[in-house]
C-alpha cells in the first residue's frame, strides 16, 4: 500500500519469533507470560498482539491478546492470558507453555484503543474481568512519568481472588492521591455490578474525564458506556474493546 500521505501509523505487521522468559499464574484463570521479542521496543499502552501457534503438521491457530506491561526498555513485554474452557491457544499457555518455548507474534495492533502520557487525561478506565489488562498497561505507563494525570479505574470482577493485579492496583490507589480504584465484585456477598452510584463515585474523584477506555465483555462494556454517557460524558471521548459475545 502506498497512500503514504494519509497513513497515520505506517506499519507492516510481520510475524516475529518470541521466547517465553517468564510464565506464572496470576489468578486461578489467568496466566502472565513475559516474552522477549523485537516488538517490545515500541508499543503503546492498550495495544494488543496477534499470537500464532504451529503444530507439528503445520496446523496453525491465532488469537489476539492485550499487552499488560508498559514499555520498559527490557526488550520484553507481558501478556496476561485468560484460560478459556476448551481454549485452543489459551489452553496451551495455561497447560503446556514453559520458559524457553517459542511462539510467533505480530503487532502491536490497535491505535484507537491506546494511550500515552502526551494524550493527557483525566483518564476514566473501566475493565470487566480480563478486560482490565490493557487498562493495567495504561496505569503502568502513567506511573512512568505521568503521575500528575488523574486516573480512576472501575473494575468489575466476579471475586477478589479472580481480580488481576489486585495487590498492585490497591497499593497504587493507596499511595497515589491521583488514582482511585472502584472495585465491583459481582459474585461475592455484599458485592455489586457496575451501577450509576459506582460511576458517580469514580467521576466525583476524577472530575470530567478527557479520555475514557472501556474493555470487557459486551455486557460490561454496554452497561458501562450507557452509565458513563448518562452521567454526562460525551460519547466521542469513549473508546471500547470487547471480547466474547
Amino acid at each position: 500500500m502506498s497512500s503514504a500521505t494519509s497513513v497515520i501509523e505506517p506499519v507492516v505487521f510481520r510475524w516475529h519469533r518470541a521466547e517465553i522468559v517468564a510464565i506464572a499464574p496470576v489468578t486461578p484463570h489467568v496466566t502472565s507470560v513475559r516474552l522477549r521479542c523485537g516488538l517490545a521496543a515500541a508499543y503503546r499502552a492498550g495495544q494488543h498482539v496477534d499470537v500464532r501457534l504451529t503444530a507439528e503438521d503445520g496446523y496453525q491457530a491465532q488469537r489476539s491478546y492485550s499487552i499488560a506491561s508498559a514499555q520498559d526498555g527490557s526488550g520484553t513485554f507481558e501478556l496476561m492470558i485468560e484460560g478459556l474452557p476448551d481454549g485452543e491457544v489459551s489452553g496451551w499457555f495455561s497447560q503446556a507453555a514453559a520458559v524457553g518455548d517459542h511462539v510467533e507474534l505480530r503487532g502491536p495492533i490497535g491505535g484507537s484503543f491506546s494511550w500515552d502520557g502526551p494524550d493527557g487525561g483525566p483518564l476514566l478506565l473501566g475493565g470487566g474481568g480480563s478486560g482490565v489488562v490493557p487498562l493495567l498497561a495504561m496505569l503502568r505507563r502513567r506511573a512512568q512519568g505521568w503521575r500528575q494525570i488523574p486516573a480512576a479505574l472501575i473494575y468489575s470482577v466476579r471475586t477478589r481472588a479472580e481480580a488481576i493485579a489486585l495487590a498492585e492496583l490497591e497499593s497504587l490507589a493507596a499511595a497515589d492521591p491521583n488514582v482511585s480504584l472502584h472495585l465491583a465484585t459481582t459474585r461475592e456477598a455484599g458485592g455489586r455490578r457496575i451501577d450509576a452510584a459506582l460511576v458517580g463515585d469514580a467521576l466525583a474523584r476524577l472530575g470530567p474525564p478527557g479520555k475514557v477506555f472501556l474493555c470487557g465483555s459486551n455486557r460490561f462494556v454496554a452497561a458501562a458506556s450507557d452509565l458513563i454517557m448518562a452521567a454526562g460524558v460525551a460519547p466521542g471521548l469513549i473508546r471500547t474493546e470487547r471480547f466474547g459475545a
Binding site: 500464532r52 496453525q60 491457530a61 485452543e88 496451551w92 518455548d101 510467533e104
Partner: peptide, 27 residues
C-alpha cells in the same frame, strides 16, 4: 516454526474448508 507441545483443535473437514486461513468458527 513449530510450537513445542501445541496440537490444536482440528475442525471437521467440511468446517475447515469453509474457514479462511487463521480463522476459527464461533456460534
Amino acid at each position: 516454526m513449530v510450537t513445542r507441545g501445541f496440537v490444536g483443535r482440528r475442525q471437521p473437514p467440511e468446517t475447515g474448508a469453509r474457514l479462511p486461513p487463521g480463522q476459527y468458527l464461533t456460534d
